[in-house]
Amino acid sequence: MDNQSNAKTPTDFLSTVLGQTVKVRLNSGIDYKGTLACLDGYMNIALENTEEYVEGRLKNTYGDTFIRGNNVLYICADK
């Protein structure tokens, strides 16, 4: 079993994906995929090597990206 299968709380999950590639879905439906660099208690997220997807299509690429937590619908591991 990998660490993600053993995660019991959202905090446990986020600690296992720190430094890994994640997908962040915004309330607007836009997706960002990148390496989770850090996040805080307000769910503000810093991603590295970020790709922006609109309606499933790659629209932009960014180096570092900061996403305000109040815009986040969910975060998931991107395999």
Rank of each mutant, 00 (worst) to 15 (best):
E55P: 01
T11A: 07
K8C: 05
S15I: 06
A77F: 15
V24H: 01
N49G: 06
K59T: 14
D64G: 02
V22R: 01
K79I: 14
G29K: 12
T35R: 06
L26T: 09
G19R: 02
T65Q: 08
Q20E: 13
A46N: 10
D2K: 01
T11S: 09
L47P: 08
T61A: 01
L47A: 02
V17Y: 12
L58R: 13
G63L: 07
G41C: 03
L14H: 00
N6Q: 15
L73Q: 15
V72E: 04
L47M: 06
R68H: 06
K8D: 12
E51R: 12
Y74K: 13
T11L: 08
R57A: 11
K59Y: 15
V22D: 01
Q4W: 07
K79E: 13
T11D: 14
T9L: 04
T65R: 04
G69R: 00
G34D: 04
L47V: 13
C38T: 07
K79T: 14
Y32W: 09
T16R: 08
T50F: 00
D31N: 14
E52V: 15
R68F: 08
G56R: 06
T16I: 10
Y42H: 10
I45M: 02
G29L: 07
T21V: 07
V24K: 00
T61E: 13
V22W: 02
T9S: 06
C76A: 14
T61F: 06
D78S: 11
Y53F: 15
D31E: 13
L18M: 04
